[in-house]
Amino acid sequence: MPPIIRDKFTIHSKAIVCQDIEIRGDVTIGAGTIIHPKVTIFAIAGPIFIGNGCIIEEGAIIINRRKDVMRIGDDNLLEIGCRVECPEIGNFNTIATRSRVHHNVRISSFCVIGAGCLLAPTEDETLDDYTVVYGPSAELRTWSGRGKVQEADLRRKHAEYLKEMLPKFNRLRRGDGT
């Protein structure tokens, strides 16, 4: 029999979380984080902490199969249909459309996982800051950091826009506390 998962959602009052999502287990969502409809968040074994100002787009899947806490930092962008199981994600990463990251990868900060990449190393791996994963065979490179300010600005404005627009068209979910 599978272990019984106790649902406990802590959603910051300034987070925008759509009603139409699948969410299980112990999940904490930080201020200003935006979760689009049709997102799946499964904290199967351990809890999931999502930081501030993240944008999680439709069809994204976040799963924690480990007993430990899964931490997702601040200002991350998880694009359409990506699948993330890694125990740690730093700040300001982009996980692009339809990419998959396995549970033995730790992501630092300012990384980009390209569209459609599959990141499934045979042993544990930590991506350093500014790593870019790209192409069909998931090659690695380092980003020079050019355009970082612009990118940060775009993300901030994007989150701001969604904060205003999403509630007009979608029902929102509130935490247990309220």
């Binding site: 439709e58 359409i80 600005d153 826009y161």
Partner: peptide
């Protein structure tokens, strides 16, 4: 399928 409009900032304004 997922169909969503693209976004960018143009002259400092974010828009879809």
């Amino acid at each position: 399928c997922v169909m969503r409009p693209p976004y960018k900032t143009y002259r400092g304004n974010f828009n879809y």
